[in-house]
């Protein structure tokens, strides 16, 4: 692998021109992240349709080894990254959480495809978990059904970017260097339906309420985005106002544009737009020149 020292350099410590590509001054975090992100070993672990595209990504045409996702490890003990590639069922989520607990830290989860992100087309099914993030922390979501190999590669590069942005000094970024052993994720139980141990109290309350023939109690806190979308629709209904007016206020923070951690896509689009504009201008000038000649 060719070593690109510029990747590591930090602008606040300039290197004399004659030493460029020989010396790089960097921070510990950056060096650590650089090493880490270029040796992300995914777990050899396929769930459904997306797994086939994952294999295609690993094969010679797309070859994710180029990014250091070098070897797929069949054991969780040697893996850094879990690619949840496909529909997660209630029956399967139990082993998945166990596997996650067995992975050594630092560990990352990439939800590949619509099913792993949010249940996908099978969401309404009685045996389908609507998104692995109901049980595990997910770092990158790759939409698509299934994502093409290039879309998966994009997601993997996105994960590398995320790692780049982390700092050893920040406990939120690298919780695994805290004091004491890390908490394992509680493993769900297959009862009459799947039971998340974290929700035990809630299930008990509901069961008690049901036993006393009362209505279900308790209101779940909605995720802010959809709550706002719902509010937006509600206002639209009551006021009958035009959509433009609502999308300005309510939706501006539903779909934040400023705080987006992943701006590459936007950058690409912007570049593409500028390119197109430039071409358009060239064409226009050519056309006007031709018109003048005539």
């Amino acid at each position: 692998m060719d070593l690109n020292l510029q990747e590591l350099e930090r602008t606040e410590f300039p290197v004399p021109a004659e030493l460029e590509n020989n010396i790089a001054i960097t921070s510990l975090s950056q060096l650590y992240n650089w090493g880490r992100r270029n040796s992300m070993w995914p777990m050899l672990f396929g769930l459904a349709c997306c797994a086939i595209e994952m294999i295609a990504t690993a094969s010679s045409r797309f070859d994710f080894s180029r990014f250091g996702f070098e070897v797929m490890r069949a054991t969780p003990r040697q893996a850094d990254l879990m690619i949840v590639s496909g529909t997660v069922t209630k029956k399967m989520v139990v082993p998945i959480v166990r596997l996650y607990n067995q992975m050594p830290e630092p560990k990352y989860v990439l939800a590949m495809g619509a099913c792993a992100s949010g249940g996908g087309p099978f969401k309404e099914g009685y045996n389908v978990v609507s998104g692995i993030d109901k049980y595990l922390p997910v770092d990158v979501y790759v939409p698509g059904c299934p994502p093409t190999p290039q879309a998966l590669l994009f997601g993997m590069i996105a994960l590398q970017r995320k790692i780049d942005g982390q700092s050893i000094a920040n406990g939120d970024d690298v919780p695994w260097y805290g004091i004491g052993p890390a908490e394992p994720t509680p493993v769900p139980v297959l009862g009459p339906d799947i039971i998340d141990p974290r929700q035990m109290d809630m299930i008990r309350r509901q069961a008690e309420a049901a036993a006393e023939d009362m209505a279900m109690v308790g209101q779940r806190e909605l995720p802010s985005a959809t709550q706002l979308v719902a509010a937006k629709v509600a206002t639209a209904e009551t006021t009958g106002a035009a959509s433009a007016a609502i999308s300005d206020d309510a939706l501006s923070f539903v779909l934040p544009t400023g705080g987006n951690p992943w701006t590459e896509a936007e950058e690409i689009r912007e570049k593409r737009r500028l390119r197109a504009l430039a071409r358009k201008a060239v064409r226009a000038s050519r056309r006007s020149a031709e018109a003048e000649e005539e």
Binding site: V140, P143, N260, A265
Partner: peptide
Amino acid sequence: HDYELASYDRTSHHIHDKEK
């Protein structure tokens, strides 16, 4: 045709509204 849609947060990015 744009498949490069990976994001870090699905709650805010994965419901596409009219604007998007």
